[in-house]
């Protein structure tokens, strides 16, 4: 049996699981709706004039886009894999003919359509309340947005994989991910666009992987980047992705050896 049908089966399983736990998924969508509250805050703060180059409509566009990109780059392999390594549940996955990493990737991706379906009405309501958003008007931005979004998801997934693999040696790797999330919330452009950071600090933040997974695709989508900036951003994404994928693959192989050593 080739890989295609196996992945198809995993996809169907993932869709079934997401549908079964739809209430839970909705709470997760709300948990990641912080950008929409940031929208209200910054919308109010910009009431007496634009803040730097963001007026009210720009903030509305930014944060609705941030909410949507956050949903479309969602992945949770770190919690599942961390638990499976700690409790030994991973054994069952290792017996299957598909790598556990691919298994998690398919499950996470399979929840995407339903997640988007749950998030869309929320975003639509906000758009009705705020009176719409401005999107990129150049074709090149839209063409580049698709790979930027895919790279953002891959990057988020590989980062979580790297941290989850540390569970082969540490007792609870997901605690480390909490630290990562705290940094992400501040530096990814989740609560405030990074271009509003004080200069110097802002440039550093924009080169980090946090921004590559959220702020960059968002700015591309609302048309705040020209083609050169967009290509630079994709270059940064590719560089971080190469790093985290290599690291992830290495940790996974080393980890499995350590896991076998005390699991067998």
């Amino acid at each position: 049996m080739s890989l295609g049908p196996k992945l198809g089966a995993l996809w169907r399983l993932g869709v079934a699981e997401a549908t079964a736990y739809r209430a839970s998924l909705l709470v997760w969508v709300l948990t990641t709706a912080l950008p929409l509250v940031s929208l209200v805050l910054w919308h109010a703060l910009a009431a007496d004039g634009p803040i730097a180059d963001y007026d009210q409509r720009a903030f509305d566009s930014y944060f609705v886009a941030a909410f949507l990109v956050r949903q479309l780059t969602a992945t949770w392999i770190v919690w599942d894999l961390d638990r499976q390594i700690r409790t030994g549940e991973l054994n069952a996955l290792l017996m299957r003919p598909v790598s556990p990493v691919l298994h998690h990737a398919m499950f996470n991706l399979a929840a995407m359509p339903l997640r988007a379906g749950l998030a869309a009405p929320v975003a639509a309501l906000v758009l009705i309340a705020t009176g719409g958003m401005s999107l990129a008007d150049s074709a090149s931005s839209w063409l580049l947005f698709v790979p930027a979004l895919i790279l953002a998801w891959l990057l988020a997934f590989s980062i979580q994989l790297c941290i989850a693999c540390l569970a082969f040696w540490l007792t609870r790797a997901s605690d480390l991910y909490d630290l990562w999330i705290s940094a992400y919330i501040v530096l990814a452009g989740y609560l405030v666009p990074t271009s509003l950071f004080p200069s110097g600090f802002g440039e550093v933040a924009r080169a980090l992987p946090f921004h590559a997974t959220l702020g960059f695709p968002v700015e591309l989508l609302i048309g705040r980047l020209d083609t050169a900036e967009a290509l630079t951003g994709i270059g940064i994404q590719l560089a971080w992705l190469a790093l985290f994928m290599t690291l992830g693959a290495w940790l996974w192989r080393r980890g499995l050896r350590a896991y076998g050593a005390f699991g067998a």
Partner: peptide, 29 residues
């Protein structure tokens, strides 16, 4: 170190949006 010190550091870092707002405005509401 992992919970106490880092917890305090990140809670303070989370104030970044407030700092940004005060960079551009004399006061927040």
């Amino acid at each position: 170190w992992t919970e106490a010190v880092l917890g305090v550091i990140w809670s303070l870092a989370g104030a970044a949006p407030l700092v940004v707002a005060l960079e551009h405005r004399p006061d927040i509401a």
